[in-house]
Design a protein around this nucleic acid. Structure first.
Lengths: 218, 218
DNA sequence: AATAATTTTTAGTTAAAACTAAATATTTGT
DNA sequence: ACAAATATTTAGTTTTAACTAAAAATTATT
């Protein structure tokens, strides 16, 4: 597999996972910042290699073989992201670019040892699940914190209210994107909740909980 | 810099470091497993980029700029080797191939954080020195253990006697390639010495000490 | 010093992966 | 349903980094 082929397979995987329909040539071209004609060329090549199903003018889907390759790339990408954040103290938003390079390193042993070294993490710093060696992966959904029941857990991935005031509040309370939040207790009366973040317990109001997006395992 | 250009610059660096004379086209072709004609093409390109000095039929030398790039690649290669051995428990002889890939990852921040994470190591698992951020590097020499004075330190990089019996002895005493050995005391009478290896002190005879090669800082 | 052997370069090809422009399908709108 | 708009493919070109074969320069040998 060339670097370019891997990038295409990954792009098709990400574009296709939301939908059941085949992925269009233009969508791939957009994602990859190339021209549709380049995509067609590559799709013919990937079809010959048995990685995609391609019918002229009808877009492509990944074959099982193609899907397995995509998942192994996603696995590598996300494990490296965990490494960069947990071990090298990169911040949430600095990891993607470097992981895009690291995901192409070829060594089964490397990635499996890395997995073990990181403690077999199940999600990356963006809250996305990490496929296992066999390509199995939990699904996650994005929900507002306020929707979570007590005892549940999630990773902070975004905000609904983007005002300076709200962002300043988060900063002051040590809540950052990528942090793991567990809901300890909910107060149904006023919608406030007791949560733990980075080992610290705090109480937050409904207004806060209604503006924080989390990724949670389904 | 493309991947291929980086590989050429690194090859020229390694071939040129032993000698003062320019590196020949054929030597580069051998090292890179390509043909001389491909090397000539690339040398013209690297000369245009200001990385090598190239006179027709006279071989090439690296410019200061080229040398700096070579050293940054060597730095990355050797730091990744330390990571693989120290953190992921790869063995001495498994790291090279993977480090050949990792050395091409482009991120200043990554490599400097990795350096810090590893505790700013000065040598790699083969006993070769790791260039600093600025390209400075200690020189090392290969010597027999028996040549070392008391209080000195080195990394085991090879054996003179390759007999099964000797290798079995090393294995039994927990001495492996890549291990750091410190000389605690020498007995000039019989040439035996007290050494520490992996935190364990042992006493070895002259015959042993005369057959172990170490790399030591100059 | 002249010829032979070797090394290096030049000239022309190839394969991968991109591109533009033109042709062909498909989808959309009336 | 048919024309217009959009999407996709085809055909032909470019660039990078390799290659082979032939020419030219350097080095070695007698």
């Amino acid at each position: 597999m060339t670097l370019s082929e891997e990038d295409y397979v990954k792009a098709i995987y990400h574009l296709g996972k939301e939908q059941s329909a085949p992925v269009s040539t233009n969508a791939i071209a957009d994602q990859m910042s190339t021209k549709p004609s380049s995509v067609t060329d590559m799709m013919i090549k990937l079809a010959e290699k048995g990685l995609v199903n391609h019918k002229k003018y009808q877009g492509v889907t990944l074959t099982d073989h193609g899907k397995a390759i995509a998942l192994s790339i996603v696995r590598k990408h996300r494990l490296w992201e965990v490494f960069l954040v947990d071990k090298l103290h990169f911040s949430w938003d600095e990891v993607h670019e470097v992981a895009e390079q690291l995901e192409h390193i070829k060594s089964e042993k490397l990635i499996n040892h890395l997995d073990k070294y990181l403690g077999f993490p199940e999600v990356d710093p963006h809250g996305d699940p990490i496929p296992s060696k066999k390509g199995e992966m939990k699904k996650t959904v994005k929900k507002l914190l306020i929707e979570l029941p007590a005892k549940s857990i999630g990773i902070c991935v975004g905000v609904k209210d983007t005002s300076q005031a709200f962002l300043r509040f988060l900063d002051k309370n040590g809540i950052a994107l990528g942090d793991t939040i567990s809901v300890l207790d909910r107060e149904e009366f006023d919608g406030s909740m007791q949560i733990a973040i980075n080992g610290i317990e705090i109480h937050i109001s409904q207004q806060i909980a209604a503006n924080l997006f989390l990724k949670i395992p389904e």
